[in-house]
Computed example of a mutant assay.
Amino acid sequence: MSFLTSLRPAPLRALNLTRSFSTTPVSRLARMTIVGRLADSPEIIATASGQDVIRDALGTSHGPKDNRQTSWWKVACFAPEGGLRDLVMGLGRGSLVYLEGDCSMNKFQGKDGTSQTALSIVQRNVEVLDRRDPRAEGQAEGESA
């Protein structure tokens, strides 16, 4: 038994559940935290089973100002009733949000027959850091027409 193995708690040594890069137990849950701006106002769609899902996309930027890179994250929220639904649907394009979600990688067959993967993020918690009103956005577009 190596020195590092002897430092592990006995139950974890017995189950061999520790990872070489972490001292926490193995988890089958992947969670992501994103602070970003909404690409557009959220939309509600119905699944094949009839359940409502709120879909939106968040943009995050990194890097120096003259070489800024943006990543886009597609997020789904199985539409809750009441206050949380109203909060999310009341956000306009450009609203800054703090989002926590469960993640999974899904494999699927593309239209051209190739095997593809996509990251799926299901929202669990959201906090609004800077609200943009979707009605003000529509009025600004109407004034320029």
Rank of each mutant, 00 (worst) to 15 (best):
F3T: 08
L7N: 06
L7R: 08
R13M: 01
R13L: 04
A14L: 05
A14R: 10
L15N: 09
N16I: 07
N16Y: 08
L17V: 02
L17D: 13
L17N: 09
R19P: 00
R19I: 03
F21I: 07
F21W: 11
S22P: 02
S22N: 02
T23M: 11
T24Y: 05
T24P: 00
P25E: 04
L29S: 10
A30I: 03
R31L: 03
R31M: 09
R37F: 12
L38M: 00
L38H: 03
A39N: 07
D40Y: 00
E43L: 14
E43G: 14
I44P: 02
A46K: 15
S49E: 08
S49M: 12
S49G: 13
S49F: 05
Q51S: 15
Q51W: 09
D52T: 01
D52C: 05
V53R: 01
D56W: 11
A57D: 05
A57V: 15
L58C: 04
L58N: 06
L58S: 05
G59N: 12
G59Q: 13
H62W: 15
G63Q: 04
P64L: 04
K65Y: 13
N67V: 10
N67M: 07
R68Y: 07
Q69A: 12
T70F: 08
S71R: 15
W72K: 05
K74M: 10
K74W: 06
A76M: 12
A76D: 14
C77A: 10
F78C: 03
A79E: 00
P80D: 00
P80C: 06
E81H: 01
E81T: 12
G83C: 09
L84W: 08
V88R: 01
G90F: 04
G90T: 03
R93I: 00
R93S: 05
R93W: 03
G94C: 02
S95V: 00
L96V: 04
L96N: 04
L96H: 02
V97E: 01
Y98H: 13
Y98Q: 06
E100V: 15
G101S: 04
D102T: 14
N106Y: 09
N106H: 13
N106V: 14
F108P: 01
Q109M: 14
Q109K: 15
G110S: 15
K111V: 08
K111F: 08
D112R: 09
G113F: 01
G113M: 01
S115E: 14
S115H: 06
S115A: 11
Q116F: 03
Q116R: 15
Q116N: 12
A118N: 10
L119Y: 03
S120P: 03
I121R: 04
R124N: 11
R124L: 11
R124Q: 13
R124K: 15
V126A: 02
V126G: 06
E127M: 13
L129R: 03
L129G: 02
D130I: 05
R131T: 09
R131N: 09
D133P: 00
D133A: 04
P134S: 08
A136L: 10
A136V: 12
A136H: 07
A136M: 12
G138V: 13
G138Q: 14
G138D: 12
Q139A: 13
Q139R: 13
Q139K: 12
A140S: 11
A140W: 05
A140E: 07
A140D: 08
G142M: 10
G142D: 11
G142Y: 08
E143D: 12
S144T: 11
S144R: 13
S144G: 08
A145G: 14
A145T: 12
